[in-house]
Every structure is written in structure tokens, then in C-alpha cells.
């Protein structure tokens, strides 16, 4: 018989990612397809379709055409959307309906570690989708700088900045709260407005002052700005860049602190 080595410390997290990766691999083909079709639709429908109407004034946006403006911004906004849906139904399923996370609580992995692994995994998921986004942007000739290679990393940070707090909510709502009934509401009243007010479609300065400030406080605009700068190679000041990253990381860290508690509550009561 093979005596198992005691797995201690964070090493066991690697096995969590391995587990998620093997689950993910099973749906890889449909993920790839969806990952390419999504951006293609946006770029054709909004970028080119709407673009022909507004290209004349694209210079005001600082780009040659509207598709150059909207394409990179949508990479960040899509990262937010993907992370949100992974953090709602997908996470609810792993916690309850399917019990995958419940069974993990009997392994050496601690629930607090599980939450960190969970958020990082969604970060990886958004990274993969962002890479496919980048491929489509390349095909449209929108990429203007090798710095664009960093854009999927920022997309992953944007994804985690949403995954951590939203998964924290899911953990809470599955234990004491309203459960999955709250999920469509979060999408409609939270994520879709943020998508529209993210600065992906137009500069947030266009918004009424209150909405503009909401957009500045919420992480998605920071992702949009940074990703657009990286992809178009228009450069962003070092300080501003670090500021954007700091906002994204702060949301992630705060979400993890809360989510560790809500996951302990839902999985370990």
C-alpha cells in the first residue's frame, strides 16, 4: 500500500487548481468557441455596425475609429461579466447543488484556502477568455503595442476584483440569505449597469456626475482604462497604472477577507 504523504500548507492548493483544470478541460471546446464568438459579435455588431455612424467623431475619443475604442474596453467589461456569472450560478452549484466544494472540505484543504483558490481559479478563467479576446482584436488589427500581452493579466485582475466579492455574496446567500433567487437581480441591477457605465463604450466623463463617481469607485472602469492603454499602446502614466492595479487588488483582497467567512459559514456550520 502506498502511504500518502501528509499534505500541509498551501501546497494542497495546487491540487485544487489541478482538480478545477481537469473539470475545465472537459468543456474546453465549447469554452474556446464561446470565447471567440463573444468578442467577434461585439466587434462586428457594436464596433463596426455602430462604429460606421460615429467614426467621424472618433478623434474625440482619441482613436482612429470607434472599434479601436470599444474593442479593448470590452475585454475588461467581458472579464467582469464572466467573473460574475462564474461567481453566481457556477459557484452556487459547486457549493450546494453539486456538493463538489462540500466534498473538498474533507480533504486537507482548509475552507479559507479553498476560497483563495476559488477566486484565483476564476482569475485564470478570465485570463483564458481574455487571451481569446486578444486574438480576435489582433485579427481586427486593433492591437497597437506589444504591451497588449499584459492585457489578459489585467483582465484576470478585473475578474478577481469581481469574483471575490460576488462569490462572498453567493456564500452568504446560500447559507442564510435569499440563495440563487438573488442572482438574476445582481446581474440586472449590478453587472449590466456597470457594463454600460464601465467606460468601455464612451468616456465616463459623459455621465452625470453621480454615475461618473460610481464608475470611478467600482473596479471595472480601472480595468477598462488600463487594458485600453496597454492594447492601443497609448501609454498610461506609471502612477495611474499602479493606481488602477491597486484598486483591483484592493477589491480582491477585501472580497477574499469577507468570502472566507461566508464560505466557512456555508460549508462549515
Amino acid at each position: 500500500m502506498t502511504a500518502p504523504v501528509a499534505v500541509t500548507g498551501p501546497r494542497v492548493l495546487l491540487h485544487f487548481w489541478e482538480h478545477q483544470f481537469i473539470r475545465f478541460r472537459k468543456t474546453f471546446r465549447s469554452t474556446i468557441t464561446a470565447g471567440l464568438v463573444g468578442p467577434l459579435m461585439y466587434l462586428l455588431g457594436i464596433g463596426i455596425g455602430l462604429g460606421t455612424q460615429v467614426d467621424a467623431r472618433a478623434a474625440e475619443l482619441g482613436t482612429d475609429s470607434y472599434v479601436d475604442y470599444v474593442g479593448p474596453g470590452l475585454m475588461a467589461a467581458s472579464a467582469m461579466q464572466l467573473a460574475a456569472s462564474e461567481s453566481l450560478w457556477q459557484t452556487g452549484g459547486l457549493l450546494r447543488w453539486r456538493g463538489v466544494y462540500v466534498s473538498i472540505t474533507s480533504t486537507p484543504l482548509a475552507i479559507t484556502q479553498l476560497f483563495v483558490g476559488h477566486v484565483a481559479w476564476i482569475g485564470f478563467r478570465t485570463f483564458v477568455s481574455a487571451v481569446m479576446y486578444l486574438i480576435v482584436l489582433l485579427a481586427f488589427g486593433i492591437v497597437g503595442s506589444p504591451l497588449a500581452l499584459l492585457a489578459p493579466v489585467v483582465a484576470a485582475l478585473t475578474g478577481m476584483a469581481f469574483a471575490a466579492p460576488i462569490s462572498a455574496w453567493t456564500g452568504w446567500s446560500m447559507s442564510k440569505g435569499p440563495g440563487e433567487q438573488s442572482f438574476p437581480m445582481i446581474l440586472r441591477l449590478g453587472i449590466i449597469p456597470l457594463f454600460l457605465f464601465s467606460g468601455a463604450f464612451y468616456p465616463i466623463e459623459q455621465l452625470p456626475i453621480v454615475l461618473e463617481w460610481i464608475a470611478r469607485v467600482v473596479p471595472v472602469w480601472h480595468g477598462v482604462e488600463l487594458i485600453r492603454a496597454l492594447i492601443l499602446g497609448e501609454g498610461v502614466g506609471l502612477l495611474a497604472g499602479l493606481g488602477h492595479v491597486a484598486v483591483l487588488l484592493s477589491y480582491t483582497a477585501a472580497g477574499i477577507a469577507v468570502g472566507q467567512r461566508t464560505f466557512v459559514r456555508v460549508l462549515g456550520s
Binding site: 500518502p4 499534505v7 489541478e18 486537507p108
Partner: peptide, 9 residues
């Protein structure tokens, strides 16, 4: 198998 991996196999 995947479960066993969590235990260091």
C-alpha cells in the same frame, strides 16, 4: 484519483 491527489498521492 483527483480526490487522492489532495492527500498527496
Amino acid at each position: 484519483m483527483i480526490y487522492g491527489r489532495y492527500f498527496g498521492l
